[in-house]
């Protein structure tokens, strides 16, 4: 904790989130993101949380289950109605090729 995020590290994260960062906005993005990291570090500078258990869920609910009972699925036309591209009752996506 403490180092700046490098441009390469930001690019890797953007890639993992499938986000493009245009060349023109790269600088701004890097500045802003390092600003966020700096903000967080500053705020927690003096805080020791070693002995604290993390909270993932704020309500203490456990083992919430439903019975294995079928519910109507969507009619196929409805399921596909919002699809940007569909064919043969399926969602259609462009060619899947190797990375880069």
């Amino acid at each position: 904790m403490g180092d700046r995020i490098s441009s390469a590290e930001m690019a890797r994260a953007a890639e993992a989130a499938r986000l493009e960062i245009a060349a023109a906005e790269k600088e701004d993005f890097l500045e802003a993101i390092n600003g966020l990291f700096a903000f967080v570090r500053r705020q927690w500078e003096t805080l020791n949380t070693e002995a604290v258990t993390p909270t993932a869920y704020v309500r203490n609910l456990k083992s919430v289950c439903r019975p294995d009972v079928p519910r109507a699925s969507l009619p196929r036309e409805t399921a596909l109605a919002n699809a940007p591209d569909a064919a043969d009752g399926c969602f259609r996506v462009p060619k899947i090729i190797e990375n880069q």
Partner: peptide, 17 residues
């Protein structure tokens, strides 16, 4: 893929980005 905006792209990866 299933809803919302989709950009023109040559392949899936580019489509996501």
């Amino acid at each position: 893929v299933r809803f919302g905006h989709r950009a023109e792209a040559r392949h899936l990866h580019e489509m996501y980005r």
